[in-house]
């Protein structure tokens, strides 16, 4: 781990839900363009770490630094603004707004950022094309398959050209073939845009798409032994 020059860095994160600690002094760092897998058994605090890193929840103690900002000190509104402009998200399921068409779903982050509808939808269409699902533009999420939906979600995460993409079990609900395809597209697109990817997964084959892995066990994140 080389914190110097890192894009996003967390130190000594503690977070407890009730009496059970989810994070117990976790450290983490990621560099621009790097894909880092966060692994660990279920309930080990992987998702909590991701949420803290993305500024979605505030740790009980510890700091998260993103570039010059200390996320842990920012107001909720500033954090939200940062998430809109600099971060992208892919979740396991249920993330597309069911009423909006796929195109509108992809355009949504841009529109939340203030981009005009026409321009947002034009860029959204580019990303749908790039993820080979442009034929779904007019369909609603309820009418597409799981793998297609995940591709739309990835397009949505990438449409703002974020600097960090947070992916929480992005292939968790997919069969291996679709999962592989989605991972290939995600890492490829991230490499092209020099986005860092924080990839939470419990699947080794998914983690193998990362440049390195971090194992969370009992609320503590460990750099894999012997890794560079």
């Amino acid at each position: 781990m080389n914190p110097a020059g890192s894009l996003l860095e967390a130190r000594a994160l503690h977070k407890a839900y009730g009496p059970t600690p989810a994070l117990d002094g976790a450290d983490f760092a990621i560099h621009p363009g790097e894909v880092v897998a966060v692994m660990g058994p279920s309930g080990s605090g992987k998702s909590t770490l991701l949420h803290c890193l993305a500024g979605i929840i505030r740790p009980d103690s510890g700091t998260v630094r993103y570039g010059p900002h200390a996320l842990t000190d920012l107001s909720d509104a500033r954090c939200s603004a940062l998430r809109r402009s600099d971060f992208g998200f892919v979740f396991q399921f249920g993330q597309l707004v069911p009423e909006l068409t796929c195109l509108e779903n992809v355009a949504l982050p841009l529109r939340l950022n203030g981009t005009k509808r026409k321009e947002a939808e034009r860029r959204a269409r580019d990303w749908l094309t790039r993820l080979e699902v442009d034929d779904l533009a007019a369909k609603r999420p309820g009418d597409v398959s799981g793998g297609q939906g995940q591709r739309v979600a990835i397009a949505r995460a990438l449409v703002t050209t974020p600097r960090v993409i947070f992916a929480d079990e992005p292939t968790g609900a997919l069969d291996s073939l679709n999962g592989e395809r989605v991972m290939g597209l995600l890492t490829e697109a991230a490499r092209d845009t020099r986005a860092a990817v924080v990839l939470v997964t419990h699947e080794a084959r998914v983690a193998a798409y990362a440049d390195r892995e971090v194992v969370v066990r009992d609320g503590i994140a460990r750099e894999a032994v012997g890794a560079a």
Partner: peptide
């Protein structure tokens, strides 16, 4: 061993 496996998998 796990890190070694993962390195090979990567």
């Amino acid at each position: 061993q796990r890190a070694e496996h993962l390195r090979l998998m990567r």
